[in-house]
């Protein structure tokens, strides 16, 4: 089974039926896989804070949401995480492409990578880092944990997890 299939199977098995995305090259396969699942409404958003608003509404409407985005989005969404998702106590699994980590080819991506875990820690957001594909075995438990505690939870997936870029 491909890692993309496994990830989306876990989303579906946890009743996630509303997914919003701001794409990343590393996440392209997961997003394609989501579009093959009729039980999941995929609504692309233009910015990640907008996407979190959509997820908040979808959850209040009875659908379990998830957002798929890059770690650069942490810089965009701090206020939304604090004053919407956390303040109203809402669950939000965040599947995050962790750019700027090992096997990253683009130097600028390292700049936000350096802040990513510190910001998530500062926000008291439970954070998991998938570095190799076997780490994804925990995804099902992480999703259950997210909807148990009604919190935003970050799942960072780095380039090594996705198999790197060519010869990097």
């Amino acid at each position: 089974m491909s890692i993309n299939t496994k990830i989306v199977d876990d989303l579906v098995a946890n009743d996630i039926s509303f997914v919003t995305t701001v794409p990343c090259k590393q996440l392209a396969g997961v997003i394609d896989e989501i579009d093959t699942r009729p039980g999941v409404l995929h609504v692309p958003s233009n910015k990640e804070d907008e996407g979190m608003g959509l997820c908040a509404g979808a959850w209040m409407g009875g659908k379990r949401p998830a957002i798929i985005m890059q770690n650069t989005a942490i810089g965009v969404t701090i206020n939304t995480l604090a004053t919407l998702i956390q303040y109203y106590r809402m669950p939000l699994p965040m599947l995050i492409s962790y750019r700027g980590e090992l096997r990253e080819p683009v130097a600028c991506q390292v700049e936000m990578a350096l802040h990513t875990k510190a910001l998530l820690a500062q926000m008291n957001i439970p954070t998991y880092h998938f570095h190799k594909q076997s780490d994804a075995q925990e995804l099902d438990m992480i999703l259950k944990y997210t909807f148990m505690c009604n919190k935003p939870v970050a799942i960072l997936t780095d380039a090594n997890f996705w198999g790197g870029y060519g010869d990097q």
Partner: peptide, 26 residues
């Protein structure tokens, strides 16, 4: 009524997500 206490700009996004997730008018 869902009152937004913070997060300027997201009223339309929250309402739209809610409308997509269920059938009642929003």
């Amino acid at each position: 009524n869902f009152y937004m206490l913070g997060t300027m700009g997201l009223s339309s996004s929250i309402g739209f997500g809610l409308a997509l997730a269920q059938d009642k008018k929003v």
